[in-house]
């Protein structure tokens, strides 16, 4: 009986190890995560407004129907990325998220930077080069240091009325998200 209990205990400990491994590995292997779903939609080096009538996408990403969304996916291995543009005078927020769902940087319209966004996203090597070259950084330009290369920029924009939704989607599509820009 004591031997059976010992084997059972070993099974429970091994089960605990399997459980912890699964929980830690799920973000790396999930195929239905936000990154994978957006990969087929987001064009290269541009913001795309998510279609509010796409029910399946809305359900999968759990989008808030009160907001408009603009998405840009990029890989810093190909160089730093520059996000630049004007947003309508309403509530908005910008987030830079890693593939595993961690939000590395976020700001909102209430942060006091006006309705113009200028963000440069760099990985650690690019940040070091930027510092070594001693480039003068323009006023209002935000530098974000990202620990990983594969990132998604997400802009949420609140239209006060439904009639503004189309106009706000156009404004989101106008925001640049490119590897080439002057700081």
């Amino acid at each position: 009986m004591a031997r059976f209990a010992l084997w059972l205990l070993a099974g429970l400990i091994l089960g605990g190890i399997i459980h912890l491994s699964v929980i830690l590995l799920v973000p790396s292997f999930a195929e239905r995560d936000a990154w994978s779903r957006l990969a087929g939609i987001a064009p290269d080096q541009a913001f795309v407004a998510l279609d509010p009538d796409d029910n399946e996408l809305g359900r999968a990403l759990q989008l808030d129907p009160a907001l408009n969304y603009g998405i840009c996916q990029f890989d810093l291995a190909r160089g730093p990325i520059f996000i630049d543009g004007n947003l309508p005078h309403s509530f908005w927020s910008v987030a830079i998220a890693a593939r595993d769902g961690r939000v590395i940087y976020s700001t909102t319209s209430r942060a006091g930077s006006g309705d113009n966004i200028k963000i440069g996203v760099f990985n650690p090597v690019q940040s070091r080069l930027l510092a070594e070259e001693g480039l003068e950084i323009g006023q209002g330009f935000l530098i974000v240091n990202a620990p990983t290369d594969q990132l998604t920029a997400i802009i949420r924009l609140w239209p006060e009325h439904d009639a503004l939704k189309t106009r706000y989607d156009e404004a989101l599509s106008q925001i640049s998200c490119t590897h080439d820009a002057a700081i």
């Binding site: 699964v22 929980i23 830690l24 799920v26 973000p27 999930a30 239905r32 995560d33 936000a34 994978s36 779903r37 999968a60 990403l61 759990q62 989008l63 969304y69 927020s93 987030a95 998220a97 595993d100 769902g101 961690r102 939000v103 940087y105 976020s106 700001t107 909102t108 997400i154 949420r156």
Partner: peptide
Amino acid sequence: PYARAHLARQGMLPLGKGE
């Protein structure tokens, strides 16, 4: 880690704490 795994499994768009 549990919340991160849940987020990946659910596939929801992340929302920054500042947002």
